[in-house]
Design a protein around this nucleic acid. Sequence first.
DNA 1: CCGATTTGACCTAT
DNA 2: ATAGGTCAAATCGG
Length: 268
Amino acid sequence: MGILSAWPETLSSHEKRVVEELVNAQELVHKILTSFDHSISLLTRAESVEVSQNQAASDYDSPCCKKRPVTKEKRGCYKRRKAEQTRTVASATVEDGHAWRKYGQKQILNSEHPRGYFRCTRKYDQGCKATKQVQRMDDGSQMYQITYIGTHTCRPDSFKAPQIIKDSESWRSYKMLTFGDSNIPSNTTSVKQEANEETTETTTTTTSGLTDMDSVIMWKDILGADYGDVVSNVYSGTEITSQSLELDLVTKPVEFEVDFEFDESEFV
DNA sequence: CCGATTTGACCTAT
DNA sequence: ATAGGTCAAATCGG
């Protein structure tokens, strides 16, 4: 791709090797992302069947309190849902790129941790019906069980990954899976973080729009323990290690990002 | 000042 | 009766 096509004659052999390794890394990432997308598209297909079935039997959109006047407005008025339009994920982070506003918290029977209730911040200005429930898991794993109810009808407008990555299922699921060690102490704090991401273009960004943190964490996590097998397979016969690769990439984030673009049409 | 969070009350489903 | 989902007043914080 870009790096190879612009191969300068003046590069030292060491520099050439660095570039080669970067290209190899790029191919690795491509494979990983492709694998992610295929897996997720399979899951999504199965899920969408369930959702449509649920929607058919759902009266979720009807006003709450069917035994009461439609004109609301009694406190706590709601209709308890079953499984319609819900999906539950276990995640190390509550971060998902959407802005949520907490509207309640409950202590749940036989659960160590309270459950937080969140609605989309666009509920009123865009009529977005998405809500989610977040509860720390009781297994001491620092993981959160997050139940998403309904789908976002608002348009997300501030997630600052570059468009080609931003729109990728791989990127979304990657964010979901890997930003876990931010050590979020409570859902109160985390909501605030989500709001910040939504309304401000906070942390320092590189030319591609990825944060520096994004670049570092991405490579560290992708090439780390979780993908150790992939790395060892792809790089068998070379001296490269995930750690050295990470260092190279951290010191040269821009070079990497310029060539990180890939044709998403291959993923359809 | 205004939007977000906290928290107890309120309400429904089971 | 009670567990759990939602509301909204009080409070917080930028």
